[in-house]
Design a protein around this nucleic acid. Structure first.
Lengths: 162, 162
DNA sequence: CCGAGTTAGTTGCTTGACGCAACCCAGTGT
DNA sequence: ACACTGGGTTGCGTCAAGCAACTAACTCGG
């Protein structure tokens, strides 16, 4: 994605996409949500160029979606945490995850599942617990590896073994 | 080969974004959902370059999100319609709309609201009717102009009057 | 019959964001 | 002392996005 303004658009979807519609932005938010908080961790996990990661993190901080905080002095080391606004993206991520799983399914099954921390129930495309029916938020749920992940790991090992 | 893919990502969010994460893609889907079906209509409404619109439409058709159909012969004229897969993006769009309205509010109020066709109730960020509590789908809801739209129109008129 | 308008694109040129690799710097382990 | 790690920045080439002009098939008004 190139420039990030959609001139003349009077629509909250367009405004949202100005902020998180750039390539990598939503994936960075997803990774931070899943506990990846450090620069190198994010860079290796995503395979994004370091300069691009750097500029995306700066933009996400500017937009108050992430917060940068030192987790140790000497040497200074930083971690990135989600703000409330950042956590507010959870329903959109869940919807995209569910859409991908439903309409472009992995033959091995979904690579990642989201479960309700409290009761262990599966989370629907609307971010609702299918077990207890509660409308959940980012902190109420956690990701667990799904059956599709195994296939991907086998695949990666086969590639590495060549 | 390295075109729009997020290499090494085993995640349905990443796979979803490969398809709809490109600039304009989601806005095109939104417009088609709101009844804009023709090339020129989309081009004027979005302000996107014609060649970019052309290539996005081709990609969305290739991914089975849109369908191209002639609505008249002689001269041949085409319209673009959403498939089931395309309609399946509705919850994600609703979540992004709600996120924009909540965390980057327009001073005049939201420019667009979504209401449940059946009972007229407002639709929540999860695509649930706040009136009757039903979990809705794309066809159950319609957009209505919100208070923020008036401000934008006034603004546009002020610009035009100069 | 001629020219203007509508719809649906395609072509060609230019710019700028992204990917890649290399480099930098401070501190730390060996 | 030297390499390694974490957290970036710099420089360069490529490819996608923006802009404008052009094509093409058909219709309509004078």
């Amino acid at each position: 994605m190139l420039r990030n303004d959609y001139p003349g658009q009077v629509c909250s979807i367009a405004r949202s996409l100005e902020v998180v519609g750039e390539r990598w932005s939503l994936l960075i938010v997803r990774d931070v949500m899943n506990g990846r908080r450090r620069f190198d961790e994010l860079q290796k996990g995503l395979g994004v160029a370091r300069n691009v990661l750097s500029s995306r993190l700066a933009r996400l901080i500017e937009e108050d979606i992430l917060e940068r905080r030192a987790y140790q002095e000497s040497p200074q080391r930083f971690e990135y945490l989600l703000t409330e606004k950042g956590l507010g993206l959870w329903p959109a991520l869940v919807a995209l995850l569910a859409w991908g799983d439903r309409y472009s399914p992995d033959p091995n099954g979904p690579p990642m599942l989201i479960v309700h921390k409290e009761c262990g129930g599966a989370v629907s495309d609307r971010g609702i617990c299918e077990e207890c029916g509660k409308v959940l938020h980012a902190r109420d749920a956690r990701p667990v590896p799904g059956p599709g992940l195994k296939g991907a790991i086998d695949n990666a090992e086969a590639l590495a073994a060549r």
